[in-house]
Design a protein around this nucleic acid. Structure first.
Lengths: 340, 340
DNA sequence: CTGAAAGCGCTTACAG
DNA sequence: CTGAAAGCGCTTACAG
């Protein structure tokens, strides 16, 4: 293994000079700088990450905690991971990916051993068990998803309340007066998936305000149960003219369900989902949707985290809680209800 | 930060004794061992990963190189990642996830800085550019996907040739004499996605041998092009009675396409895909398929890699190339063709 | 069974 | 502008 000592010898300087020449942390004569760079190239030198981490207390690695639950739709999670990973790399960080089901012990392991400079937690629940561990850790953390207690961390989430209102208002303006709302399965709620009830409660409240009948339901996240549940729902409420879908698996299953019943959007039913454009393209979903922006949220979390990692130790910025304003992407699946 | 020095002082022993008591690498008196363990608990000590890596030249981290191409179906990739991640953790390793589009420079970076003890490459192409970098690295590598040159690495892949033969034979036995084969888009082939042509060539060869007419096609991996291409294909060959699908996006799109044409499997058409059971459940695909076993392949790659990382330096095992025998999972989508 | 010491490969005050 | 030295927190021969 070629070390900085080898580089120094080849360049005819001391190790400290070689180090400074590479880091640029002090003035170096042009001549020496060139000799060091030549030596680096000639020997194919790369600094040893472990040694550097030991000397600087920085690993330039971010821990990414993802959780894959049986009752959620895995493909939707992937996009958050990629959003985080791409931005981290752009900022010069690598990603330590942790997918263990026991997030607390995983978090304890990678923070206490100082494998990472900071943490991004995905899919954060209302009372997320991982947060106590994160707050006790020496490294800063950023969340995607809003917990009850946001203290000590930076938090990024879609504004699900506003999303619920936006969905209802959009269909209200078109003249709809009876709507169905399909949420994630109840397990997700029990586990503390706050985005489910935040969107739902806001939609219910807004519907009441607008004089709209809204029927909320929880629908499974796996086939074939999803399809059956959707079919039953449509049967139970034949007079409903609009469908709001806050459940990726249900959105993915919907085209088949509608087709089987000879329904199409927006002719027979107006449909608004809540998922990303990437998701829509992957699954060919023709429904207008609230953009969930997983890449943007992941990216925002990483940027905030890196700012905190690299900020001056004394000068602590206050923690932030940022909600992304929902935007409706029009894919033509809504219209005024047919006169019946 | 609490160090092993603090532990030693608290336990009233030397640092080396504390270290040995924790590693168990030499005999330690019962009394000392207990005092050290108590001190660890009391102080909440965890070894610093960077320092340990520097001292041992081991990071207990595996680099995972994933590539996400526009023309492939991202959700299918996720399962390989989870297979690798879960097995790595089981064996005591963490995962450094790299998703950069420039795999070569990523590989160079994480190997030359010694961030990882070994590498797993996913989605390996016929003449994969990353392999030269991997072979030049000090760390061992394991591949999922078979390149032209397998030297110097351990290779794991589904036996796609056998998969092609199995698909054809299965339908031949049921009495089919004209089949359609849907492959990944041609881009994948141009990029060196050998599994596409390996399955296809073997299927063509076997069909010829059995006296079957086989129509091979490349189909896009994104909607709505996939659906259109499938529809055209069915139109162009109305007499075909069986459909082989080596393209996840096409498989996911197929239910809608068949439904729109009032076709169903196996009544009007026998269908065999090539994807994992997990994939089938996520997308509710009712078609029998060759199990692609992403979790098993990922797991095998990691196990081989760890064996090589932890093996005695002198005693080099020969490298392996292992093909997983394809198995057909029967989901009832094939039958004898209707008499027409 | 235990300890003192060297060494892993960096970075960064300290001194000139 | 440059160098000698200390130190980051471990592990592991070496010595007893």
């Amino acid at each position: 293994m070629v070390t900085i000592g080898d580089v120094a010898r080849t360049a005819g300087v001391s190790r400290s000079t070689a180090s400074y020449a590479l880091s640029g942390k002090r003035a170096i004569s042009e001549d020496v700088r060139r000799r060091v760079e030549d030596a680096v190239r000639e020997l194919g030198y790369s600094p040893n990450a472990g040694a550097r981490a030991l000397a600087t207390s920085r690993t330039r690695t971010i821990g990414l905690l993802a959780q894959f639950y049986e009752d959620e739709f895995a493909p939707a999670m992937l996009q958050y991971i990629l959003g985080v990973s791409d931005t981290a790399r752009e900022l010069g960080y690598d990603i330590l990916l942790v997918t263990e089901s026991d997030g607390r012990s995983a978090l304890r392991r990678i923070t206490s051993t100082r494998m990472v400079d900071g943490l991004v937690l995905l899919n954060v629940a209302e009372n997320d068990e991982r947060l106590a561990v994160l707050r006790a850790a020496a490294q800063p953390g950023a969340l995607v998803g809003r917990p009850a207690d946001c203290s000590g961390v930076d938090v990024f989430d879609l504004d699900f309340e506003e999303a619920g209102r936006l969905m209802v208002d959009h269909l209200h303006e078109l003249g709809h007066r009876e709507l169905l709302l399909v949420s994630q399965p109840e397990h997700v709620v029990e586990r503390g998936g706050a985005y489910v009830w935040r969107l739902q409660n806001a939609a219910i409240e807004r519907a009441r305000m607008r004089g709209i009948r809204l029927h909320p339901t929880f629908v499974p996240a796996h086939q074939p149960e999803v399809g059956r549940a959707l079919a039953e729902l449509l049967d139970a409420h034949p007079s409903a003219t609009g469908l709001l879908v806050n459940n990726e698996a249900a959105a993915a299953a919907l085209p088949t369900v509608l087709h089987e019943r000879d329904l199409s959007a927006p002719t027979n039913l107006s449909v608004v989902g809540r998922y990303s454009d990437e998701f829509a393209r992957t699954f060919s979903l023709p429904y207008s949707s609230i953009e969930s922006a997983p890449d943007r949220l992941g990216s925002m979390a990483v940027r905030a985290l890196v700012r905190r990692i690299e900020g001056q130790p004394g000068h602590d910025e206050p923690h932030v809680v940022r909600y992304l304003s929902p935007e409706l992407v029009d894919r033509g699946s809504t219209a005024s209800p047919r006169h019946s």
